[in-house]
Amino acid sequence: MNPSILILHASGINRDEEAARACELAGGAPDIVHINRLRAGERNMRDYQMLLIPGGFSYGDALGAGTRMALDMQVYFEDELREFVESGKPVLGICNGFQVLVKAGLLGSREKEVGRQDTAARAVTLTENASGRFECRWVHLAVNAQARAGFLSAIDELIFCPVANGEGNFQVQDAATLAQLEAENLVALRYVDAAGQPANGRYPLNPNGSVGDVAGICNAKGNVLGLMPHPEDHIDAVQNPLGGGGQLGLALFKAMVGTIRI
């Protein structure tokens, strides 16, 4: 039986169907579930083996990208989420999902990995792009083979996929925060050029001005991963704007779904 993957839907989430297709191609059994059905108890997070929060504009990103949905996560699902993460089940946040994970304190928070947010503990954020605009373009990503999210080391080439966001600019409290993220191998994915060399902040290789070219981070346990770009939009070679095969975003889904023990 394929591992069941909860794809969380909420008002304004819009890349749920693509994410489901990616999960399917990666060998998972995706189930798109609206957050209100979870709240109503029609579905239970505990019954799934992986959680995916897809891209979109949850609640219109009013009050900041992902902020309102992060509140939902903290108010309604605090215990289930803690249990989910602590049990080692994989959690993936893409774009808006990444923003939600960060703002809910599940990624990039200093003191507590999980649980009711002490916002002062949050040391990273995703904020408006350096250009001040929404931006859609294809980017190259290098995985950090040493990342705590060990499954990433199975990906032996770059990932090529689009970003599409207005608030994808990864920023940190201070230089020490970035140094710590890097030292602890919590940086999972970085923007690079086509040859795999660091973008070094160069636009448009690093499309949003993220510090340290950070495109995605993971937690210390290695089972929660968030990234701004959309690997789910490159799961078939025919989608590659430059033609040719390889560098599929699908590799990330395969690696992550592959960690699930049934």
Binding site: R15, C136, E232
Partner: peptide, 23 residues
């Protein structure tokens, strides 16, 4: 202008508004 629009969402844009090796 084009880049301010998400032209990739739904994963089905196979001839995009920008083309070529430099896209």
């Amino acid at each position: 202008i084009i880049r301010q629009y998400d032209h990739e969402v739904r994963g089905g844009t196979l001839v995009r508004p920008l083309t070529g090796p430099q896209m």
